[in-house]
Amino acid sequence: MNAGPAHPPTFLRGDKAYRRQFLWTSVISAVCHGALFMGLVFSPDLTPARRWPTSVVNVSLVSLPDLGKGAALNPPAPKEARVPEAKKEYKPVPKKKAPAPDLKSKPDTISLAPKKKEAKTSLKKKTYKPDKAIQRAVENVHENVQEKAQPRASDLLEKALADLKRKVNEGPPGTGGGQGNGGGGKTGLDQMDIYKIEIAYLIQQNWAFSEQMVGGRKDLEARLVIKILPDGRISDMFFETKSGNAYFDDSVYKAVQKSDPLPPLPRGYRRPSYMVGLRFTPSGLN
């Protein structure tokens, strides 16, 4: 009669030994996958300090078509006190200064300002909100624009803002959902990302480079590594790779020299210095 085909022993239809083996394998696999996932997410850090994201920030500040646009961005009255921006802008690089605290100049100002910022830092840890981060970043960029008195900054601000928003939107799903009890979970954007955008903006503002000098070459690339102390001073800088064109390399080196000191590192950053690489290319021209 129709006895039907005899099924070969499989994991689902086999004998008990096969079933047991399948069960074991499944359990082991699930445990290992879970362990791997947890290891990647919570991998042990050698230093007790908090972990800083290591993503590359791609800051392409767009060229600004005409000088007239900057006029509208002239700052309102309150920050007029910062007059000698030109002197600050072109201060030569101090060579290899030790990260010793600046005891002479700081005491007066530290007592007031840090308290406010500490409060902000702790707030950030508990209820981190991307909107506030964006607002603060924009304020910082505004301050920089005032200090440098550079024209045509409005477009740059818009671009920086757009970058920030984009980054916030690109954060891991669920972190930006506005639940409020997230406990300061990692988002796509944090203080260091904003800081990197700030220093990229400042250095780019000080970068003087004539494309004509290199015959319109767009294939040049120089990588410069800088070490930033907590107060923003650049304690060390060196070329990781040069472009091969002396003029181009000189121009990027001078851009960093002019930008020293950079803004202080974010207060939440607890390491003695911050080492970051700068990749210069003239590709944004025209």
Binding site: C32, A35, L36, G39, L40, S43, T54, S55, V56, V57, N58, V59, S60, L61, V62, S63, Q150, K196, I199, A200, I203, Q204, Q205, N206, W207, A208, F209, S210, E211, M213, R223, V225, E240, S251, V252, A255, M275, V276, G277, L278, R279, F280, T281, P282, S283, G284, L285
Partner: peptide
């Protein structure tokens, strides 16, 4: 799994880079 984590940490430990590709001043002062 351990090797994967080590590789991940190795990549993460490298110097991160910021791209700057549009000089603001187009002439030599």
């Amino acid at each position: 799994m351990g090797v994967a984590v080590m590789v991940f940490r190795g990549v993460a430990g490298a110097v991160e880079y910021i791209d700057i590709n549009n000089p603001f001043i187009r002439k030599i002062p």
